[in-house]
């Protein structure tokens, strides 16, 4: 296990994780390589010297309460926020300097952005498909619509869809280019349990079939437990812990990640927990 906050380890060993990434990816270069990343907004250290590497083909959960620095971290990985110091490399490209070399291989979904409401689902997907230079776009849209159960909504304005339908459209947009790296910020926020479960299932299948890397920020502990090979817990801009869900739960002597989360959030030290977590 790595030390808290230094995070130089790769994803947990295959035998630790319930959804281990394919063996071939364990030896490959990291999909994401973050080193000593710092972001200061005026006087607030939103991200405070974090480092981690994420193996290709893995699903990693970024956990933390509000203001923990998850969204800022993801935004810096995407190149939408510039770090104060430190470095980020994505799929071998330095971010932000070389981001246009890899943007076509990435995609993201976030509650902080929307798809244009007045355009139909098909129009939105057509535009993003063209931006990503997707071949055979019409077929690709039909395929995504079938996969994500959107076929009957394709010609409906995005603004007339329910929250669950909008999330599926956002997911269709995030998958339009079959990204090697998918960054998801609260992918199932505001969804009913059935739709949320359906989305998680789809993400899991996508990772397996495309050997994709997924980094997701979430407040949903069950989601993280179910999906992720590895969990990075952030608090006040720092990495509090970094291991497989099972490893973390065992270390905190807890049965669920939610209990661990509450321990970390409330500063409770459990027996065997890493120093500094109380």
């Amino acid at each position: 296990m790595q030390q808290r906050g230094t995070g130089q380890a790769q994803a947990p060993a295959a035998n630790q994780a319930p959804n281990q990434p394919p063996a071939a990816d364990q030896s490959g270069s990291a999909a994401i390589d973050v080193a000593h990343l710092v972001k200061v907004y005026k006087t607030t250290r939103a991200v405070d010297d974090i480092s981690f590497r994420i193996a290709r083909g893995s699903i990693t959960g970024l956990l933390g309460g509000n203001g923990a620095g998850k969204t800022t971290t993801i935004a810096m990985i995407m190149g939408l926020v510039l770090p104060t110091s430190g470095s980020v490399a994505v799929l071998g490209a330095r971010i932000p300097e070389q981001r246009y070399d890899v943007l076509g291989r990435m995609n993201f979904e976030s509650p902080y952005v929307d798809m244009p409401m007045r355009l139909t689902v098909r129009q939105n997907l057509t535009i993003f498909g063209r931006l990503y230079a997707v071949k055979h776009l019409r077929e690709r849209i039909d395929q995504l619509a079938a996969d994500l159960d959107l076929t009957e909504f394709l010609d409906r304005s995005n603004g007339k869809l329910s929250a669950g339908q909008k999330t599926r459209v956002a997911l269709a947009k995030a998958l339009i280019n079959e990204p090697d790296l998918l960054l998801l910020d609260e992918p199932t926020a505001s969804l009913d349990p059935d739709t949320a479960d359906w989305v998680r299932q789809h993400l899991e299948t996508y990772r397996k079939t495309h050997n994709a890397t997924i980094l997701l920020a979430s407040h949903n502990m069950l989601e993280v437990e179910r999906l992720c090979d590895r969990v990075i817990i952030m608090k006040r801009g720092k990495i509090e812990d970094d291991d497989s869900p099972e490893g973390i739960m065992a270390r905190y002597n807890r049965d669920t990640l939610e209990e661990v989360f509450l321990d970390v959030a409330r500063g409770r030290l459990r027996e065997g927990a890493p120093e500094g977590t109380s």
Binding site: L103, Y112, V113, D114
Partner: peptide, 14 residues
């Protein structure tokens, strides 16, 4: 207005 800028900035659009 559409809060779409993040999607565009994350796409290959320069």
């Amino acid at each position: 207005w559409a809060r779409n800028l993040g999607n565009l900035m994350m796409s290959p659009l320069k």
